[in-house]
Design a protein around this nucleic acid. Structure first.
Lengths: 334, 334
DNA sequence: CTGAAAGCGCTTACAG
DNA sequence: CTGAAAGCGCTTACAG
């Protein structure tokens, strides 16, 4: 059967394509009688407008691009799920779709056509920004509305939504210090992410405010999988032995850390306290359950999507940001 | 600054738009000299082809639509993450993008424009099919290449990729029976999903093959969140008391079940054994760790994406399916 | 309230 | 190897 286009419908209804378009979009008043004929034709022909053609003609795609983490991280990270859910719910409400890009930056597939193309998106959401983030640079250069999830390097020029990570880590470390811990390891994320340095800043501040000193060696940068947390913490735990607490970049890494402690027969929290960030489901399930910094992940996704829609609709021009309050959820591990 | 189109580039390079298109796509040989001029112009102007225009002209979008679960399920389900990762990795390899649709079917937003439109996708992947699945029906009706993740109702007309769930549950229940359990509860998923009945079939088969009988009351249909597993299992555990094992639809529900057992002070696995499906990270982390049926989630995603690409490229016409072998991973809970 | 026509920015036979 | 031209299927001023 031949392709059913707006033209087919127009002929059937005895009107012109323009009229069909107006009737369907409601952008112009069309007489009831004509409207009925058009609807009937649409029904009979089972007509579906081509989104592609519509996109081209209206230069509007109703699609938002989400630049996520590498897939191997996604596999172990509930934090992603929560943010994604917040984004999806918000966009769905406003009839926007989502195009998902996983991060394959490391592959250096420089010939990748896609990156070089103007993606059919009205706006972009970039998760977990890096220090010199190519995606941010590229998107901004192309003038596409952008909201960063996390804190971008150049805060002045960007819209972004983030948790108050530094304050959160400050509170977390402070909490441990008040409990009597003075030697706290920080198993931080990879140094390329801005989130990593924000965590470190909170850690340092807490030490300073309490008049204590720390050693740079107590701070480690690791990748974000459980296995990475396990491996790297195992190494450091053999060099540094008299620490009494560990703070991690996220829940996944904490699980790796706790596995090392269990294997070594080090009791948690009696010998060593462990505190993570994310407050994802695994912190409740793990035994011992894990004290974790809640970063309002679903809200972050929601706020970021809301903000992006405002930027797309030009309700906001001046770069601004939203900060989500964090709070510590105490559990057995501390 | 004015919009940079293929026309702009053509003028700058002193050629026609067609030549630029051919040079960039490589679909025709263009002399080196001209090609150099074109590349230079592209570079100077920082030209990015419009994907939208390309899509319309070539009726090819390099995009695959993924119809996922409701967002509330996504939030607690690592199984989704793994399948998603498998899909993303495969599609990325072949330069396809992914458009993500969460399932808001329940909202009955019948006036939803999006559903009624021809999405700009070359193919679709539908996760966790229902008994009378509207999405499947709609996509098929529109003639869009489709691969179902899970087993669709009409197996003959569909491409699909699934784990051998029935065989897996057969093996799982059989394993419990061999261990001496005769009264095993099945906390199954919602009846609207085909996966639910496949699980039940395996359960029944195992009972039959062992010459044992079971009671339909031992089988429960619940939603897929931990909270649902918790609430519904708590209810049934007050009515039926002499069971010695519980099998669940997935890991998330198992966590809810285990929470009830802990609260009731029922020792696992000594008094009651628990077995789930998914083998996601939480089964290792939970205490006691959970015996779970591994369904090769990453592979399912990978195979489904591969199959879809073959269908899109017309390398496959006749509906076919791929079945991923399951295997039981024994842990402390049984 | 309705129509004729240009335009969105590409691709792709068809000629040469 | 290169160009002129039609076409993809819509939307949107502009007239009437």
């Amino acid at each position: 059967m031949a392709k059913i286009t707006i033209e087919t419908v127009a002929k059937r209804a005895g009107v012109t394509a323009a009229t069909v378009s107006y009737a369907l979009s409601g952008k112009k008043k069309i007489s009831d009688e004509v409207k009925q004929r058009i609807y009937a034709a649409v029904e009979e022909l089972n007509y579906r407008p081509s989104v592609t053609a519509r996109n081209l003609a209206s230069s509007k795609t109703w699609t938002v691009g989400l630049y996520a983490s590498p897939t191997k991280n996604i596999r172990e990270d509930y934090f992603f799920n929560n943010i994604l859910a917040g984004i999806l719910d918000t966009l769905h409400e406003k009839n926007y779709q989502i195009q998902l890009y996983a991060d394959y930056q490391d592959e250096e597939k420089t010939s990748n056509q896609n990156i070089h193309m103007t993606q059919p998106i009205d706006g972009a959401l970039i998760m977990n920004p890096r220090i010199h983030d190519k995606y941010i640079k590229d998107i901004m250069q192309r003038g596409i509305p952008l909201v960063v999830i996390g804190t971008p390097e150049e805060r002045e020029n960007c819209f972004y939504v983030d948790a108050d990570i530094t304050a959160g880590y400050y509170a977390a470390v402070n909490y441990l210090i008040k409990k009597g811990h003075t030697k706290i390891l920080l198993i931080n994320g990879s140094a390329e992410y801005t989130q990593t340095e924000k965590r470190k800043a909170g850690y340092i501040l807490a030490y300073e405010d309490n008049g204590l000193s720390f050693d740079e060696q107590w701070i480690l940068n690791v990748q974000m999988l459980e296995e990475d947390g396990y491996r790297e913490f195992k190494k450091i735990a053999e060099q540094i032995t008299d620490f009494t607490a560990v703070v991690t970049f996220n829940d996944t890494i904490a699980v790796g850390v706790l596995r090392v402690l269990r294997e070594k027969g080090i009791s948690v929290p009696h010998k060593v306290a462990v505190l993570s960030a994310g407050n994802t489901m695994i912190t409740r399930i793990h035994s011992p359950s894990i004290t974790s910094l809640d970063m309002g992940s679903y809200d972050i996704g929601m706020k970021a999507a809301e903000l992006l829609l405002e930027v797309i609709e030009k309700k906001r021009i001046q770069p601004s940001h939203t900060i989500i309050r964090t709070h510590l959820v105490e559990r057995e591990s501390t």
